[in-house]
Computed example of a mutant assay.
Amino acid sequence: MAKAIEQPVPGITVGHALLARSAGSPQPISRIVHDGDTINIAADGNFGVRLLGVDAPEVSFELPRSSDFPDWPKSFVKISHPAWTQFLADPFAPGLEPLPLRSALHSYLLGKLDATTAANHAAHGGPPTRALMDMITSDIAEQGLTPETFKLRLAFAHEILDRYGRLLCYVNRDQREKPRPAPYNERLLAHGHVMPYFIWPNVDPFVRQENRVAQAVPEPGSARQLAERGALGQARESVRQAREAGRGLWNPADPLRLHAFELRFLAGRRAPDRYVLDLSDSSRELLHPQSYHRVPNPEDRLFVNAEHAPLWAEKGWSVPPP
């Protein structure tokens, strides 16, 4: 499927558009040009959407390239593939590109990795996919609509696009009447289908956004207050309830062992680079990116991109060197 926004090569994001439409027909140039620096357009292709605040187990991903493993597929491959079993049993094997990790994180990951890790991840990847499809299908039926007439409502936070050109938002069915159902993001968390993955400053799309990202940096020591507010507070409570009930990924008989972001950085051979704020603590520090595991509950981790860390330091937070 053609994408309206894509990355033809890593680091380069481009978009594809048409002249603005009305009832499917292009509008006259005199209507689409508002003034000398503003035009109205329509997307030429589909948008990718990344649900904010959640991280589902990977269904497929790229394996690392290595001449020592020539039989490994060179593109996206399902996590159920035997190559993933081999890789996740020992992602630090000789022949793979070195992945420099701190000893504490290395030891933490070793406790999750063996010949069954890939099968565990693959088994947990199917239910979230089916759950989201079922939620959308159910919403279409409840509203008496069809796939052709069904509409979605997107709520954005600070950042609109991720590094892959996907829209970053909370997603729900488009409904004017109240009460509305919770966004798909929260529904998935509440049923334990996904792990929380909160990345600042995209923590609450339902508040007025500051003009500058720097203005959104919280006061040092205010993590607990931040953690209880708005969409972030609701999402954290949903996760806590799902974990205590043993739902989905939290099933005590077979919980998800390796989180999706861990699988990605192991396969990508890139050490974690997002700092971490412990939302359960009142300290005035950000944790080093490789210390995220020191915060035991995933809903208590608020990740901060490396490029934003200096803004936190300027506000008075203690930020360790990379």
Rank of each mutant, 00 (worst) to 15 (best):
L311D: 13
T137H: 12
H124W: 07
P196Y: 01
L258H: 07
S238G: 00
S280D: 12
A190F: 08
M1L: 08
Q225I: 14
S291F: 06
F206W: 10
A141T: 14
P10K: 03
A190N: 13
I79W: 00
S238L: 15
S66I: 09
V59C: 06
H259D: 04
P201K: 07
D174W: 15
A42G: 09
F69C: 06
G45M: 07
V171P: 02
Y275V: 05
A141L: 08
R229Y: 02
D44C: 04
L161W: 07
A271K: 06
A157W: 01
A104T: 12
E307A: 14
R224A: 11
S282F: 03
A190W: 12
E307H: 13
A223P: 00
I79M: 15
E142L: 11
L277H: 01
R240L: 15
R31E: 05
S103Q: 14
W312P: 01
E307L: 02
L189W: 02
L168K: 06
G246I: 07
R236D: 01
S66V: 11
L96M: 07
P205C: 08
H259C: 00
N202W: 12
F261Y: 11
L189D: 01
P255R: 10
F303D: 00
L188F: 02
P218Q: 09
V171N: 01
K315A: 12
P147R: 10
A182W: 06
V49T: 04
